[in-house]
Design a protein around this nucleic acid. Structure first.
Lengths: 111, 111
DNA sequence: TCATCATATAAATGTATATTTATATATTGT
DNA sequence: ACAATATATAAATATACATTTATATGATGA
């Protein structure tokens, strides 16, 4: 049984919907910057705001979106709220997407 | 050097933009159905329309989007136009996203 | 050239979303 | 209770996008 058959049996329509939903959450560069920044341990909102140089409401909005897709874990400690990447496999997804994009773009320039 | 450092050096802002752009192309379930369907060899537009039970203009629209993101290769043969997945690594991305989604959803229900 | 089939495009519509500005809520220390 | 800080929410705006319906373009065969 080859990979295609494996995929077709394991990627039914419900799972495709879920995958598409996660992909939508990964479709904004600022959210990817946030995910990458919180991938090596929990970070407070203010830390994210300062480090990524984004407005506080914008970071809050994107964190809400990431929380909606379950891609982040949230934890309160006193006045601070910490966000952390919930599944490290997302990092490999991002790396692969970046690699694929690089290849596709370089191939496009080859006439 | 751990994976995080590797990621931070290889995923600069340009690459994040590219990854986000590809992710956006993967953020629609109908597009994922199309990508999966054309992943085992080129398929004509009409075949996609019939097999996936989508309207012809809708399929055309999504194929245009997939072409814009370079995720498909296009080839004309007489009156037919064939589309094919341009990079099979996209399949592993979809499989991983589906797996992650399944895990995140099942973990959410565990109180 | 005409009719037919395959595919693309245009127009219209509804909905989603990224961002900014302004304000509200929640927690802590005094 | 009050002031200060951390974070979230609301409102407004602009833009993007999925889908449908209608029409156009392009290729083929008679």
């Amino acid at each position: 049984m080859d990979k295609t058959l494996t995929l077709q049996s394991s990627l039914d329509n419900d799972r495709l919907q879920s995958a598409a939903f996660l992909a939508k959450s990964l479709s904004d560069a600022n959210r990817l910057r946030i995910l990458l920044f919180i991938s090596d341990g929990k970070k407070s909102v203010s830390t994210i705001v300062e480090e990524l140089d984004l407005s506080q409401p914008l970071v809050s909005h994107h964190l809400k979106e990431l929380k909606r897709s379950l891609l982040v874990k949230v934890e309160r400690e006193g006045p601070f709220i910490y966000y952390e990447l919930s599944d490290s496999r997302i990092l490999t997804v991002l790396q692969t997407l970046s690699d694929v994009a690089t290849n596709l773009l370089s191939a496009r320039k080859t006439f």
